[in-house]
Design a protein around this nucleic acid. Structure first.
Length: 467
RNA sequence: GCUCCCUUCGUCUAGUGGUUAGGACGCUGGCCUCUCACGCCGGUAACAGGGGUUCGAAUCCCCUAGGGAGCGCCA
């Protein structure tokens, strides 16, 4: 039997880090075994579901490159089918109407809690005769009273829950809209899902779902509950832990492959290996090897992984991915004839695309001011003479190449009897506005003679004004 | 409170009865050096605790503690 997995986000927000990893694990496993992955939008919470969230989820998945083979299905379009199943359950005696008011249930739970018991429905409507005239009852599933449900979880191992611990859950609200536990079961059954790979916050739902599946005579899927991703404080990842939406990482200049690589190592490993291409992930990944314990999300390590990908990316990839950031900075990078040189010069010194753009900016946009600290440190005394000497020599230079520029700079340092730094730094500040740039000879050669001379002259004027 | 899940350096992890408990991120000392960054060499730091089993436990069993999740007419 071929494998069918599913990724069922509910569109109540963006695609977050935890969801992305669950999607990744599903995707990797599916690709590995040559199965099919279903995308299902669980939008039965009409209050909180939004179209915008649906788009954000599609967007996130697409950016990460996690595609699916079937769907997207929307649960709100399957209401008729859920209704069918509910009445089937009602007719077979696996479900019943419950007429309890919300208030009655609340006080029942409060009472149980007070007695130190687990709050749960006590089954008071279980054997009540149907009340024909009564208004809008809910439908509850008639859970078995004895026995136990055993889950042979692919990650957690064998889990056994006694049916006494479970209560009769609501499967249809008073307005007829089915609840989560019912829709999941129906969909998983109808869509032929063979493997349910989801967050371990669903472990507690699993025995209930299994009981419903059994009542429906359906095949039970294989379950694999992946542990949560925690924030730095050890609590479940949420907004207060900083960036949780995958699109935020896109905006911060991360490469999708880097995020994937980081995510796959959160809860899964292959010996001491850190870096995996997508192909290697598919090849090496197995759901059985996912760890049982939760993992803390570490932004520093993600940054490092991203940096590794930045360094190994091709210039074309780099341009493609950084293009939006450049254009935001007012630079049409792909129309610049020296973009390769600029990107190459900054590639291995940038941990993110945002940083790459920041570092590259001055090649295209002259600094509008000089960094104050840099001025104090590098524009002091011999700086003006250095810049003037450099101007003369650069103007006279026959060919404008890094090598010839390099020897000129060395020559100036030697003739003026000072270290290379005393020469390079003033020039650097004159060109970049700050004391940071790629190697000075390389920087000049990329910038071009004319632009270099102009900026040098601007810096000399600036120094004169300061005096 | 009850039920379920989890527990190796700060973090991600290797490890499946015998290891000086390894790697990576971070932090850090040094080297390199025209800045930034890279690179190289070195350092820091862990088996939650207690009982067993065993000649021998990070590895197997039990208990305790701690953490997480769930207990809805949310998903």
């Amino acid at each position: 039997m071929s494998v069918v997995t599913r990724f069922p986000p509910s569109p109540t927000g963006y695609l977050h880090i935890g969801g992305a990893r669950t999607a990744l694990f599903n995707w990797l496993y599916t690709r590995k075994v040559g199965g099919r992955m279903v995308l299902r939008i669980e939008d039965t919470d009409l209050e909180r579901s939004t179209e915008e969230s649906v788009r954000a989820i599609f967007d996130g998945l697409e950016w990460l490159g996690l595609d699916y083979d079937d769907g997207p299905y929307f649960q709100t379009r399957r209401m008729e089918r859920y209704g069918e199943v509910v009445s089937r359950l009602l007719n077979s005696g696996h479900a019943y109407h419950c007429y309890c008011s919300k208030e009655a249930l609340d006080s029942m739970r409060a009472e149980q809690r007070e007695k130190g018991l687990k709050p749960r429905y006590d089954g008071r409507c279980r054997d009540r005769e149907p009340v024909p005239g009564a208004s809008s009852p809910v439908v509850r599933f008639r859970n078995p009273l004895s026995g136990a449900v055993v889950i042979d979880d692919q990650i957690k191992g064998r889990i056994e829950i006694r049916n006494e611990e479970l209560d009769d859950l609501v499967i249809a609200r008073s307005d007829g809209v089915p609840t989560y536990n019912l829709t999941v079961v129906v969909d998983d059954m109808d869509m032929g899902i063979t493997h349910v790979i989801r967050g371990d916050d669903h472990i507690n739902n699993t025995p209930r779902q299994i009981n419903i599946l059994k009542a429906l005579g359906a095949h039970l899927p294989v379950y694999a509950h992946v542990p949560m991703i925690l924030g730095q404080d050890g609590k479940r990842m949420s907004k207060r832990h900083g960036a949780v939406a995958v699109t935020e990482y896109r905006n911060q200049g991360y490469l999708p492959r880097a995020l994937l690589n980081y995510l796959v190592r959160l809860g899964w490993s292959h010996g001491d290996r850190e870096m995996f291409s997508i192909e290697e992930m598919i090849d090496l990944f197995d759901i059985k090897d996912v760890h049982r314990s939760a993992a803390v999300f570490d932004p520093d390590k993600l940054l490092w992984v991203n940096y590794e990908y930045m360094k190994s990316a091709s210039l074309d990839e780099l341009r493609r991915f950084s293009e939006p950031f450049f254009s935001e900075a007012g630079i049409a990078i792909d129309q610049m004839d020296n973009w390769r040189d600029v990107l190459r010069a900054n590639q291995e010194r940038s941990k993110t695309l945002v940083e790459l753009v920041q570092r590259s900016r001055f090649f295209y946009v002259p600094p509008d001011e000089f960094d104050e600290k840099a001025v104090r440190k590098h524009f002091k005394d011999p700086a003006r003479e250095v810049l003037e000497a450099a101007t003369g020599r650069f103007r006279a230079l026959e060919d404008w190449h890094a090598a010839s520029i390099h020897s000129v700079i060395h020559d100036i340092a030697e003739k003026m009897g000072m270290g290379l730094g005393k020469v390079a730094q003033p020039i650097r500040v004159a060109l970049a506005g700050e004391p940071v740039s790629p190697p000075i000879d390389q920087t000049l050669s990329i910038l071009g003679r004319q632009e270099t001379l102009e900026r040098l002259s601007g810096a000399i004027k600036f120094i004169e004004q300061q005096m």
